[in-house]
């Protein structure tokens, strides 16, 4: 459900690079379509079918369950904190990396990619090691009675960590390709740093930013592994939608599980739609930017 895999924008169809016959082509396309249908489409349909197995009434009833509502609320809250945070920090990091020269830049680049390359479970465990009762900061936190893991702040932190690269990864290449001359021009024209950022830098990357935010959001709502480690699974309190789905499923409440799953899948599909729209918009902008030089 988590949409972690990047789908590269297929902006243009390349000219025919190979000389396969039409038959080969048809077979290859057929295989790809069949594969997608079996691997992606069928499971998705199953989710919605299972949710509806006992009819619409039962489906809607399962959304009346206070624990389910709490899980939906928590997921939205976590996304509402993690996504804007990552958007702002990702933007700042990309800006620093793309527009300035400084020591440790490569290290920062590697760090940004780190959450992609380590397992989400480890991302979660890192926080247990940091904030757990026996972690580095555990005793200090306990002294001040601050609860980080097994509470909402821990879930937010784990989500922030796992979804951090989405915005920065989207922005850095674009900002690098755009260079610094527009900003420098703005500065010589007397614009302040803020004015330059909001009037020149930001408008130039707004579509990419939005695209990164959408990917980030999809993952933030769908993240299971890292959140599972720091959640504590307290019903109605620290279960996000993905965790709650597992719980419902384990309680033989299949309709309930698939009802929440289809809501999550629905949100993901919406995100995907918005993303495709942006890809289409964004491809146009990129092509225009390329033409200009």
């Amino acid at each position: 459900m988590a949409m972690s895999d990047r789908v590269l924008p297929l902006a243009h169809t390349p000219e025919r690079a190979t000389t396969e016959t039409a038959a080969t082509k048809a077979v290859l396309i057929g295989i790809a379509v069949l594969f997608l249908a079996a691997i992606l489409f069928l499971p998705l349909v199953t989710v919605f079918m299972e949710a509806l197995r006992k009819g619409w009434g039962t489906l809607f009833e399962s959304f009346g369950d206070p624990d389910t509502l709490a899980a939906i609320r928590l997921t939205l809250l976590v996304a509402a904190i993690a996504v804007p945070f990552n958007a702002v920090v990702g933007l700042a990091a990309s800006w620093a990396i793309a527009k300035f020269e400084f020591r440790g830049k490569n290290l920062l680049l590697t760090l940004i990619d780190l959450p992609f390359s380590i397992s989400p479970v480890i991302s979660g465990l890192v926080y247990v090691l940091l904030f757990g009762a026996h972690g580095w900061l555990g005793p200090w936190l306990q002294h001040y009675n601050i609860q980080i893991i097994f509470a909402v702040p821990g879930i937010v932190l784990a989500t922030v960590l796992v979804t951090f690269p989405f915005v920065a990864r989207e922005l850095i290449p674009l900002m690098q390709s755009q260079g610094t001359s527009e900003e420098e021009t703005a500065l010589t024209l007397g614009a302040s740093g803020w004015h330059t950022f909001f009037r020149v830098t930001l408008p130039n990357v707004k579509w990419a930013l939005l695209y990164g935010v959408l990917l980030c959001n999809a993952r933030a709502m769908g993240e299971f592994g890292a959140v599972s480690v720091v959640s504590g699974h307290i019903r109605g309190l620290t279960n996000t939608m993905p965790l709650h789905i597992e719980i419902l499923y384990n309680e033989y409440n299949f309709v309930g599980a698939f009802a929440v799953a289809s809501l999550l899948a629905g949100l993901a599909l919406l995100t995907l739609l918005a993303k495709s729209f942006l890809e289409w918009r964004f491809a146009g902008e990129l092509a225009a930017a390329a033409r200009r030089h």
Binding site: S181, E182, E184, T185, A186, T188, P203, N204, R292, H293
Partner: peptide, 15 residues
């Protein structure tokens, strides 16, 4: 400084 600077690649604000 009030400098009018014109870059090699124009650097017009593309948007």
């Amino acid at each position: 400084r009030r400098i009018g600077f014109v870059f090699q690649q124009y650097a017009l604000f593309r948007h």
